[in-house]
Amino acid sequence: MTSDDQILAAELALGLLDDAEHAAARRRLLTDPDFAAETAWWQDRFAGLADGTAAAEPPAGLLARVEARLAQGAPEGAARRWPWFAGGALAGALAASLAALLLIPDAKVIERVRERVIEVPVAAPAPLVAVLTPGAGTGREPIAAVYDQQTRTLRLTATITVPEDRAAELWSIGSDNVPRALGLLAAGTRGSIRIEGETLLQPDETIAISIEPAGGSPTGLPTGEVIAAGPLVTS
């Protein structure tokens, strides 16, 4: 660990970095255990800064709302516009492929997407989207991803090609900066994966894909090349 690495971990823990640097530092958590430990150390130390904040009484009934959401199995989402597209945050071709991806799936999903576009309040939560950028100098194209919060399905715009005896594994890094394995992308199909169990992706998470031995990483952390990574945002 150089002192530059230590400072980068502090910058990540504090949130000082701009979006691209932040995503790159989070990607490094996946492959560099020392860097991950340094980041965790800073987070624990900085937690003391929240300690001076005065306590405040939340409204009565908030716990009931939390429990209702948990019973429902998915977060409630207000109707939203698409500032992400309108703002030109994406290169045109990628935006188009992402838009296509949003409109391709089964009829039910299409219906929900249309409802949101015209800003009718709906019970369904807005999908989360991410642009997974490749590492610098790899010559790979960015991949767009859409996560449907209701079906807990993550879809990718591109087929991930991997050598025959290898597998593409999907990871998330949440606001605790701890990487979690989400599952393997089926070979030869356009990436679509249902996130099983209690894992629910949130808008603060970074999504990454690594190339692993068939059957997935044996260590619980990526062991091969991280081919793309990027943060999930609300669409």
């Binding site: 949130g15 605790d176 808008p203 603060d204």
Partner: peptide, 22 residues
């Protein structure tokens, strides 16, 4: 409490960043 306060802090920061971007 550190574990929970970190979640509260990070989600709040995320809201601020997203809100400001929007």
């Amino acid at each position: 409490i550190t574990w929970m306060a970190t979640i509260a802090r990070n989600r709040s920061i995320d809201w601020r960043r997203a809100n400001r971007r929007a």
